[in-house]
Structure formats: structure tokens, C-alpha cells
Write a protein that binds this DNA or RNA. Structure first.
Lengths: 251, 251
DNA sequence: TTAGCTTTGTGTCAATTTTACACTATCCAA
DNA sequence: TTGGATAGTGTAAAATTGACACAAAGCTAA
């Protein structure tokens, strides 16, 4: 539905799109929200693509990214960061991609520069099966993705690299977790994003020393092992911390 | 000259430009190459702007940035990094900017998304007075810049922020220095980019421990003080270093 | 009820890194 | 030859990092 845009084409800028890399975390691994373009493309190549859209001529890029995110998932006021612009004139070279574009765009031959954004959302806040978008969107573990439409594979990994850098500098990972989370979940999250094992005790020590977590007097329930304490991210404490010029989490 | 593009307009993409933040270092402070748009704009507002151009429809963004850099300075094979896309539809709001665009563009009203790149060049490799571009380009210390055309002030500082982050991770600062340089020059360079003082002895120790400098058996001559030893950046040693997964200079 | 499985949660020590800090050496110019 | 300027150097205390192992708590299934 979001992709059948011919009707309002006159307001669209046919040369510029935004694509969204929407990261989630299933408490095991990093995942990303992809759309399935269905059988039109599957005969020719990858079915899966990043959600994205042409921009309107009167909106700025950040607004466009926010709009697209909201249209796709209903999520608003979400951390969004630009990955960069991708503009190889040859980026639409796969047969499947051309076929698909014909089906949804007024000017499928126009050269499109796309501006990619990434964002982190708690997976529980967007459940594909429950939304209108459901039939053709799904969370996919990043590590399992081998190819995507257009240059989306490249974009995905550029976004992941940005995320990797960013999480060393700002505590943005909390955006992927539920409000209450355990240190082990946070630990696995960091390992997924940084793609390397982190010593459990050292990780805990480091995080706790930052003093940006509120320890809740509450534990997991119903787990078949020792239940873990729950924590909340403490925004106030983090504000204090940044005001001292702190910008290095040391990972 | 570079900006009178009406003739070849049919090959240009009227919606997308690249702007270049060309950083230099005058051995005292960080500088940037700006063009002076002359009196057309000065009556209305800022004369100074980042060099930039519309892209051709058949070139990718990185190529466009390289081309523009070469057209403006003659420099080739230079480290270039994307800052990001800037696309506020309202970004051309100053009267001076509108007037100027009318004088150089076929479609001055079109909305333009610009993709910014930054690059580091030794100032000695581009001397405005000697080039055709000379009359209207100049190196300006970043700290003295208070306003620029369009959203270029914002772009400049986004570029500087990227540079700040990047130099903590990769030794790109050497691109700003002459082949042979002193540790004090390198020291001042880091202080300029990071915008903070670094202890002299600690800085030297840290740099030397990295073992990516070749100490030349040569000293400064003709300076009215103790002459400094000269060093060269050692690319091979740096390669070795990165292959161990090193990605943090610890500044 | 108990044994076994699973994950949580904790401390120390050695090595490394960081920070703070002050004086002598060398060259030029006056 | 003196004064001015910058180069160049070491140490000690504090903080951080990295490596490493075992008991505690809950559930399940026998």
C-alpha cells in the first residue's frame, strides 16, 4: 500500500528516496525489518528489501525518514540517524529490481539517490503480524542476510558499521531493549552489535561503573534458572554524565 | 568559471549537488577552502561558501566529489569521506543565495539535496594565488568563520565533527601535513581538530608508542629556537597495525 | 524430593594505560 | 653573550583493563 504511490506522484521528488534500516533485537541477536517484495521479484532475484520511499518535495530528509518509519511501523519519536547518501547511477541493475519498480513507480527509469537512515526500536513495539504492513514485512537476523534488493545489502552494512561506532560513544543500545531489561540481555546486545565476545564480569563492571542504570527491586519470573535482576536506563544520570564531556564507553 | 554551468545543463541532475569541505592546516590552526561569491551576494549576506556543484546524471556521488575537488584544486587521489546528505527544502532561504543562484543555474528554483564530503589536503598542495580558481578562493581558519551561504555553516561543522570522530580511530591527520613534519606540528594539529589541549609529553609518548612514524635523521633549519626533528608517516607500519584489529588511538 | 540443568552474579591480581607535572638543551637574533 | 623561543625528556600515583572460576537460585523431570 505504501508503495503504490503513482496517485500522488506530482508531489514526489522522483530523484531522491529515503531507506530505513530498522534494527531490532530479539534478545539473542540483532535483527532488521525487511519487506518482502513477493513473487514479482523472486523469479529474478532477492525478494527482500529495506523499507523506503521517495521523498516529498516539500519535506526535509529527516522528516521524510520519520514519515516513512511511521507509515511502516506506526512508531514515532524514535532515535533516527543518517547513514549517508547512496547514489551509484548503476545501483538498480538487477532484473528483479527493475521489474518491481515498474510496478510501483511513475518514472521507473529515473536515477534515484537514496538517503539511508537507521533506527533502533524494541521489537515488541512493532509486531509485523499485527499491522497492516504485516503480510510483507518481517524481522530478519542480520547475520542471516546474504543478499538484498538494489544496493540495500551495502546500505545495511554501512548502517551496522555506523551503529558499531556510535554505540562506543553513546548508550543508544537501550533503544533496542524493553524498558526493563537484564544485564545479560544488555551484554548480548553489545556482543551482537560489536561482533565480538565481551568478558561477562568486565562488561558488568564497566556498565555499572557508568552509573546510568537504575537497579529495580524486581527479578525475572518463570525462567528455568536463577532469575536475573531487572534494570532501567536512567536518562537523568546519563545527562549528567555527558555534561562532563564524557563520550567514550571504552568498548 | 566552474559555476557557470548553464551550457551543459542537459547532463546535470538539477536536484543533487555535492559540496566539498576541504580542510587544510596552516601549522597553527585548521582551515577550510572557501569561495568568495563576490559582490552579487555581499550586499545581501555572506560572501563565502563551500565549493560545490551539481552532479552529472551518469556519475556516482564519490566520483562527483572527486571531480569537483579536482576541478577546483587540481588535486587527485585524495582521501575523501562523505559527511552526509543535507536536504532541507528551505535551505536556500537567504536573499543573497537566491540572487547568486539565478546567476549561475538554469533552474534556480529547483529543490537541491546536497551531499557533503570532506577531505584533508596539505595547504602547500593548493595555493589559491597560483591557480585559475585563485581570485575567488581562499583558505580561512575554521574558528574565524561565523556564517556561510546556504546551510554551509552547518555542513562545515558536521564535517568537522566527523573529522573529530575519525581522527580518534584512524591517523588521517597526516594528510594535512607536509611529508616531513615535526611532532609539535602534529601535536598542534590534533589540538586543533579535537578542540582541546593535549599534554605535550603524553601526546608524544602515545604517538611514538604507536610506532607509525619514521624518524628522519634531519632537523628543521633556520628556526630561531632549538630545531625539531623531522618525521615521516610510515604507511607500512600502519598497515601492520590495522591488521591486528587496531582501531582506537585513544584520544 | 532430589538430581541435574541452566543462567546469574561476584572478586582479585597483574599488566597496562593514563594523568599530572618542570626543567634543561639548542638555536637565532639582538 | 644574553634573552627569547621551542624542543625534548621521566617518573610516580591513579585508573583501567584483562584474565580467570565457582557458588547461588530457579526450574524440570525423574
Amino acid at each position: 500500500m505504501q508503495y503504490n504511490l503513482k496517485k500522488i506522484n506530482s508531489e514526489l521528488n522522483p530523484n531522491v528516496s529515503v531507506d530505513c534500516v530498522i534494527f531490532g533485537f530479539d534478545l539473542e541477536q540483532l535483527t532488521v525489518l525487511l519487506i518482502d517484495r513477493g513473487e514479482i521479484s523472486s523469479a529474478f532475484g532477492p525478494r527482500l528489501a529495506l523499507p523506503g520511499n521517495l521523498i516529498y518535495d516539500n519535506e526535509n530528509l529527516d522528516m521524510a525518514a520519520n514519515r516513512v518509519l511511521a507509515e511502516l511501523t506506526g512508531l514515532k519519536n524514535i532515535y533516527l540517524e543518517q547513514v549517508g547518501a547512496f547514489g551509484d547511477p548503476d545501483r538498480i541493475h538487477k532484473e528483479a529490481d527493475r521489474e518491481w519498480l515498474k510496478s510501483i513507480r511513475a518514472e521507473p527509469e529515473a536515477r534515484v539517490i537514496t538517503v539511508a537512515y537507521y533506527t533502533l526500536v524494541p521489537m515488541s513495539d512493532y509486531i509485523p503480524q499485527a499491522a497492516s504492513f504485516a503480510k510483507n514485512a518481517d524481522w530478519v537476523p542480520v547475520n542471516l542476510i546474504k543478499e538484498l534488493a538494489f544496493d540495500h545489502y551495502e546500505i545495511l552494512h554501512a548502517a551496522k558499521d555506523k551503529l558499531k561506532q556510535k554505540i562506543k560513544i553513546q548508550p543508544i543500545g537501550f533503544n533496542l531493549l524493553p524498558e526493563k531489561f537484564t544485564l545479560s540481555q544488555l551484554h548480548r546486545l553489545y556482543e551482537s552489535i560489536l561482533d565480538k565476545p565481551l568478558d561477562k564480569r568486565n562488561f558488568r563492571r564497566k556498565i555499572q561503573k557508568l552509573d546510568i542504570l537504575t537497579s529495580l527491586r524486581e527479578k525475572q519470573r518463570g525462567v528455568p534458572h536463577k532469575p536475573s535482576s531487572l534494570y532501567e536506563f536512567n536518562h537523568e544520570k546519563y545527562q549528567e554524565l555527558t555534561q562532563t564531556g564524557f563520550d567514550n564507553f571504552g568498548f
